[in-house]
Each structure stands twice: as C-alpha cells, then as structure tokens.
C-alpha cells in the first residue's frame, strides 16, 4: 500500500459516510439531485457546520463547550434585534461576547477549572441573556445576512459553496497557520508549547475567542435562513456540534482535530434527518438515527484503525 498522509486517511471515513448517505438519499428521491434539492438538503447545515468548527477549536485544546447551543441562540437573538435595528450596537455586543469567551479561556486556565462545568454555568447566562433580549420569538434578519444566505449563485447551490468556504477557512487557520499549530500543540502537549516560549494562557484565550467568532457566524447564518430568532432556536447545537467533530475524525484529547472533517460531520448529521424522512420513517426516530449513524461511523473508524495497525506490521493489544 502506498503512503497516504495520516491527515487524508482521517478524512476517508467521514467523506465515505457522507457520500454513501447522499447516494442513498438520491436513490430514494431522485428529485433531490438538483440545484434546489441540494440547497434544501444542506442549507440548514451551514450554521451547524460553523458551530461544529467552533466546538472543534475548543476540543483542540482538550476542553469541551457545553454552552455552544445557548451561545448560538444568544447570537441569533442579538442578530435579529440589535444587529438589525442598530448595527453598531449589535456589532459591539457580539465583539463583547467574543471577549467574554477569551476571558473564559483565561479563567479556565488560571484557576485550572474544568471547562465542562464553566461552560455549563455560562449556558445559563447566555440562555438568560437571550430570553431578556427576545422574550418571544420574533425579530428580523439584517438584509445582508438574508442576501448572503438566500443568494443563488450560478451552477453550485449556496449551501455547498458555504460549506466549502467554511472548510477552507477553518483548514487554513487550524492546519496551516502558526496559531493553528499552537492550538493543536496545546491540546497535544502544553508543556512543549510553554517550553518553546509561548504563553499557554494566550493560546487558550485565542482558541476560545476564535471559537466564539465561528459561533457568532453560526448565529448570524442561522438567522439569515430562518429570518427570525427565538431564545431556544439552537439549543440542540451543543450536542450536534460535539457529534459533528467526532464524526469528522476529531478526537477528544491530544489536539487531533480535522476542520474539513468537522464540516463533513455537520453535513452528514443534517443529511441523516432528510434521509430518514425520505425513508418515510417516523420522525420519532430522527434523533435516534443520528445516534445510530454516529455509532456506525465510530465502529468503521475502529475497523480502519485495526487495518492500519495490521499493515504497519506492529501488533498492539
């Protein structure tokens, strides 16, 4: 077997599962194989993909953000109110929110706190702020967000282009920039990052701020699609984003993440829902199917890892 870069191998299973699922959807519903069909299948995946990349950045430094869903909901509420009515104040609020994430990174690092618990507490805070801003569903999407999300570029649907752009940008930042290397280094071996003369504190804060920036984009994209917001609009993003990262070949520890994989993971999870409705299965089992797909993909990955180890000659228990 010729040498395949580990990075590409990591993407093999996520990509294969997406293609398989897409083929199954096309087989069940050939009409989905069109410009409009593809856009409908994937447009809700755009905000999920952004949130998944955000979660991936947090997971790259060995943390986990349990407030992702409430934070994206909060951003959606700000977008549908302040960003629409008084753009300047809206931008300031969102920048402040990114600042809060950076501060969380600092606190978590300085006091050596478990990120799970701190973000859990923050999920109450974001949820409360969202309720204060928008007590009842409503608001309106800023014109430019609508224009971007509802645009109809020639040949390739908006949702596909957006997914590619997100994957490319995330890939450039995480895999090709020196800051990305530091983030992954922090996840892999914090001491070596520190010994190389970097401030571990700044790297963690930066990773959190960058994640918040992606989550802000997720909230704005979501409002661009739904044209209105609600304090509970994105609560399921917390679990979806974690599942998406794992589906895409990311791991919990060690800074081993894959931005392109994360986007593919988000697309796969979104597609899973459509696949089920095309199968005419009861919507009761939609969530369950996402769980089942997660389990199947993880099982495949285990098989692949076994093969990889077997061909390498080394036998490990």
């Amino acid at each position: 077997m010729s040498r395949i870069p580990a990075e590409a191998l990591r993407l093999l299973i996520p990509a294969l599962s997406l293609v398989t699922l897409l083929a199954a959807v096309f087989w069940l519903q050939p009409r989905a194989m069109s410009y409009t069909g593809l856009n409908l299948l994937f447009n809700l995946a755009v905000p999920i993909a952004l949130a998944t990349v955000a979660q991936m950045l947090i997971m790259a430094v060995n943390d986990l953000d349990l407030s992702m869903g409430t934070f994206v909901s909060f951003v959606a509420c700000v977008t549908a109110t302040f960003l629409h009515d008084t753009p300047l104040i809206g931008v300031l609020i969102l920048l402040a929110a990114i600042g809060v994430y950076a501060a969380l990174g600092v606190i978590i690092h300085l006091r050596n706190l478990p990120a799970i618990v701190v973000t859990l507490g923050m999920s109450f805070v974001w949820g409360g702020l969202a309720v204060l801003i928008l007590p009842a569903p409503g608001g309106a999407a800023p014109g430019w967000a609508l224009a971007v999300m509802k645009s109809k570029p020639p040949l390739v649907p908006m949702a596909i282009i957006a997914a590619l752009v997100i994957a490319l940008v995330a890939h450039l930042i995480v895999m090709r920039s020196s800051f990305g290397v530091l983030i992954r280094g922090l996840g892999g071996n914090p001491r070596s990052v520190a010994r190389a003369g970097w401030s571990v504190l700044m790297v963690r804060a930066g990773a959190y701020a960058l994640a918040a920036a992606f989550a802000v984009a997720a909230g704005i994209a979501l409002v661009g699609l739904t044209t209105a917001a609600d304090a509970n609009i994105a609560l399921r993003y917390t679990l979806l984003s974690i599942a998406g990262v794992i589906l895409g070949g990311g791991e919990f520890t060690g800074g081993r993440v894959s931005p392109a994989g994360a986007v593919i993971g988000a697309l796969t999870l979104t597609l899973a829902g459509s696949f089920l409705s095309f199968l005419r299965l009861s919507p009761d089992w939609q969530i369950g199917a996402q769980g089942a797909i997660l389990i199947i993909v993880l099982a495949l990955r285990l098989v692949l890892r076994r093969i990889e180890q077997g061909s390498g000659g080394g036998r490990r228990a």
Binding site: V125, V131, L132
Partner: peptide
C-alpha cells in the same frame, strides 16, 4: 432571563 443569568454566574462563582 435575570434568574437564568444569576444562576449561571452563581454556579461559576462557587466553582471558582
């Protein structure tokens, strides 16, 4: 809204 925010801040404060 305020209740949720306070709950969250109190949890974080206790943990810190």
């Amino acid at each position: 809204g305020v209740r949720l925010i306070m709950t969250g801040l109190i949890i974080i404060a206790v943990i810190v």
